[in-house]
Design a protein around this nucleic acid. Structure first.
Lengths: 331, 331
DNA sequence: ACGAGATCTGTAATCGTTTACACCTATTTA
DNA sequence: TAAATAGGTGTAAACGATTACAGATCTCGT
């Protein structure tokens, strides 16, 4: 509420002096400083981030944006926590938005961030050729991609080794004796989907198993599509004896489908999911999953962003984190 | 990137004229308008929200804040979605922050919002006497409380009828024949906790059951405390035959404890939780819960906020939504 | 033909900061 | 003792928008 003007008036100095007291930088004689500090306290002065940001066009807004597809998806919520904790530690505030996997919403929010002059943005691009993101990058705002990569631009990137994760998950099923393994994957425009599919195929190949195209289904990452596709697979004349489901929500959906059909897990059909589930222990059965270190992804992404804000010209780096197979009782 | 200045220069008019073209309000002769619009397109002009906000101290920032205790809690995530959808519909952006039930973090973020001159704030207060929130309200920023109320200030409030929800949940257990019903409640400084406890007590009283103090335990809303307290209750010499658990995370924790002990649900111990769980169908067993319309809470809160931004002097209203008993297989 | 009125456009103040620069006083130095 | 230096403070120009006010042009009635 109180502005520099008012503080200056009360302390009977100029606004420049007040500003100098605030930004400890320049020298102010101790008596003046004391008077000004008293006035600041009296008026409960708080600097306007808005005015500051307007003046300093460079990178001192202490505000960064995070756009995620869906905050209700625990995987992204965990990333968000990682980002936010790292931001808070650096005293940055976070403009957090849900794109809902909707390019139009994503574009709206990207524009908001540009117009708010945020210092930088963290996001998983909608797909590899995400035009809105590419455009934002051209404006010079630092962008760090998480989880998914971008073909058209080289940015900092924190990702998980999806290929290796898929290999481990599928190999685990193979080790349990399964040869007919169904795949429920996500949107194939997303880089992670293709990596996981590649892992699935290579794991089968390595074990000398033949690939059945009819066992591979593509969904949209949502719970409902996991349910529907699981039903489809089990309705086949030669149904799979195991399912490899490529994200958390679809895993829950598939599990629900298995329950609906009354098949026993893992006796009748085994299941490995991608992404850990926060309440895995309370699920029926607790599913074996390939766990992604989502919190760490978010945290490191934010840290990369902070570094880039300080040093915009630094060459982009890619951090690749390792997933971990968590064996529970669905296999 | 491009400012009004640059557009004005290119169109060979003054910045005032450009501004007028943008805010369609004033009359500009069609030819001028066409020229300016061309220049706007050429330069891909986007107005700076920062500059606009600085100039218009009133309420046209089109930015609102949302502070929630923990985005990883599905209940709050659902509220957040409600808020964000309503905000997006009105073309408002959302500054979303996690207070982590930590007053210091909450204060930091409240200050950020003040300093960012947001148009308004939605939040569940940390407790009924939340000093930081009361102070913010005094600055005149519109605040809408959700879920929890504030004793010291009269704000718009969207809450759920916790008392009635608890009554229904506990009455359901009583109807199933239970007389020894354990209570696992949350922090008692929070208004919702007290309401639920009151419902629990009244439901018992109404059924003529005696209250056992040793069956009532107070936790912190987190999963771990649900687990610990469930163990404590079942370790009693006269353990309860049913549990009424007052939030989602503690319900999951309690369920995990029951599994650990190998007790069958609902045969050995029945359970009713407060808050629905997104993957209830995949849990073992799918729990009976008192469902709160969290999305609706968020949506209505945002709508109230928008109304208050337009009409700051409007008398505060309280919207009380009804919870719903969802009977599944834990009872 | 001239002033009133209407219509369009430009000038400049403002919002709350930061910061280059000028200015004024002491103190030091030759 | 005069000049150079240094230290402390004030003045004013940005940043990018909005908007009251003034100024310019045109229309039109008498």
């Amino acid at each position: 509420m109180a502005s520099l003007q008012e503080v200056a008036r009360r302390a009977k100095v100029s606004i420049a002096t007040v500003s100098r007291v605030l930004n400890k930088s320049d020298k102010v004689v101790p008596e003046t400083r004391a008077i000004v500090e008293q006035a600041l306290r009296d008026l409960d002065y708080r600097p306007s981030r808005v005015a500051r940001r307007l003046r300093m066009s460079n990178g001192r807004a202490h505000l960064v944006g995070l756009i995620i597809p869906d905050i209700q998806n625990p995987f992204f919520a965990e990333i968000a926590r990682g980002v936010e904790d790292a931001a808070y530690a650096a005293q940055y505030a976070l403009l957090l938005c849900n794109s809902d996997e909707n390019p139009e919403k994503e574009k709206f929010y990207l524009n908001v961030m540009r117009d708010e002059s945020v210092d930088g943005i963290v996001l998983p691009p909608f797909d590899e050729t995400d035009a809105a993101v590419v455009e934002i990058i051209k404006t010079g705002i630092p962008v760090v991609c998480v989880d998914r990569s971008l073909a058209r631009a080289k940015t900092d990137l924190v990702e998980v080794d999806n290929y290796r994760g898929a290999i481990e998950g599928v190999a685990h099923l193979i080790a349990k004796g399964h040869t007919q393994i169904g795949l429920i994957e996500g949107r194939s425009q997303v880089s992670t989907s293709r990596e996981r599919r590649r892992g699935y195929l290579d794991a089968l190949a390595e074990a000398g198993l033949t690939v059945r195209k009819d066992l591979m289904r593509s969904g949209d990452f949502k719970q409902e599509s996991g349910r529907v596709l699981a039903h489809e697979l089990l309705d086949l004349r030669k149904p799979p004896t195991a399912l490899f489901v490529c994200n958390n929500l679809m895993t829950v959906g598939a599990l629900a489908a298995l329950h609906q059909r009354g098949v026993r897990v893992p006796q009748d059909v085994a299941l490995v999911g991608f992404d850990d589930l926060p309440w895995a222990e309370a699920l029926d059965p607790p599913p074996t999953v390939v766990r992604q270190p989502a919190y760490e992804v978010g945290k490191q992404a934010m840290e990369l962003l902070l570094k880039r804000i300080v040093e915009p010209a630094r060459p982009p780096v890619t951090v690749r984190l390792l997933p971990e197979l968590v064996v529970r009782r669905s296999t």
